[in-house]
């Protein structure tokens, strides 16, 4: 009996050990790929096998990175873009939930708006960028609006669908206690849809980056999107690559943060 338990204990230990080893190998190969890509990029560029003017090189990008940190321009542009992105995905999520609430509140309204939502959702929203910038005048507002418009409708549709899928018997319980429609919304609809709302937040982090970067392309005065466009115009592709790396890192960090938030909130 005891012996048997020891044996199972041992097997479990072995299993955990093997998982650990496997994970280490995965990490190892990931680092190898990274090192290989950067090393060959550097090499190819130095040997002039690829055009260093277009493809730059890791070393040049790294040097530029320090230059831009020292003159403070990277921090300034990064701050601008970060603020715009965070603002736009929070506004988009909030606005999407509010629209979903209105649609849930009035089935009539939801029937009336249905075709417009479909059209608006199908439309490539970045195409609206020039119109938004002209309407709101170039600047923060129009860039944030560009980010918002990309995610708001899909958020509204996804959240509204989850509102509708809440088990009607929960509403019935509330109605037996004489609950008003607002009380039903607060006590059942919102808490039941909370996981969906958090997961749209996650999708919106990615989408709002697209909107904000495109907005900065168009407005072309500040931000990481502006750095890309500027680098492109003056044929400084080291600057373009630097901006791309910074964006990749920031977007990943932001996504992971929201992911962490989701795990924390859903567990409770």
């Amino acid at each position: 009996m005891n012996e048997n338990r020891n044996k199972i204990e041992l097997l479990h230990q072995n299993y955990l050990q093997s998982l650990k080893i496997e994970k280490r190998w995965v990490r190892f190969y990931q680092l190898i790929i990274l090192a290989f890509v950067f090393a060959s990029w550097e090499l190819l560029s130095r040997m002039q096998w690829i055009d260093p003017l277009i493809f730059s090189s890791p070393n040049k990008i790294w040097k530029l990175f320090f230059e831009k940190i020292q003159d403070g321009s990277l921090a300034a542009n990064l701050g601008v873009t970060l603020t715009e992105t965070v603002a736009s995905f929070i506004i988009a999520t909030a606005l999407g939930v509010i629209i979903a609430a209105l649609l849930w509140w009035s089935p009539m309204l939801s029937n009336i708006l249905d075709p417009y939502l479909v059209i608006f959702n199908a439309m490539p929203k970045v195409a609206l960028g020039p119109v938004i910038i002209v309407a709101l005048s170039p600047g923060y507002t129009s860039i944030i609006a560009n980010g918002v418009i990309i995610c708001v409708i899909i958020t509204a549709i996804v959240v509204y669908t989850s509102f509708k899928e809440v088990d009607p018997n929960y509403l019935k319980v509330l109605q037996t206690f004489g609950a008003t429609r607002f009380q039903c919304f607060k006590e059942a609809i919102i808490p039941a849809s909370f996981p969906t709302i958090i997961s749209t937040l996650k999708v919106n982090v990615g989408l709002s980056w697209v909107g904000v970067i495109v907005g900065e392309f168009l407005v072309s005065s500040r931000g990481l999107g502006y750095m890309i466009i500027y680098g492109f115009q003056v044929f400084n592709f080291t600057l373009v690559f630097l901006s791309l790396f910074v964006i990749a890192v920031l977007a990943t960090v932001m996504y992971q943060l929201v992911d962490l938030l989701e795990k924390k909130l859903i567990k409770e």
């Binding site: 929960y170 004489g178 609950a179």
Partner: peptide, 19 residues
């Protein structure tokens, strides 16, 4: 049909709260 996100106490006080 107890609300899964409410504690037992919150569940049994729900009717009183709504009224």
């Amino acid at each position: 049909y107890l609300f899964p996100w409410k504690t037992i106490e919150e569940n049994i006080l729900l009717g009183l709260k709504l009224a």
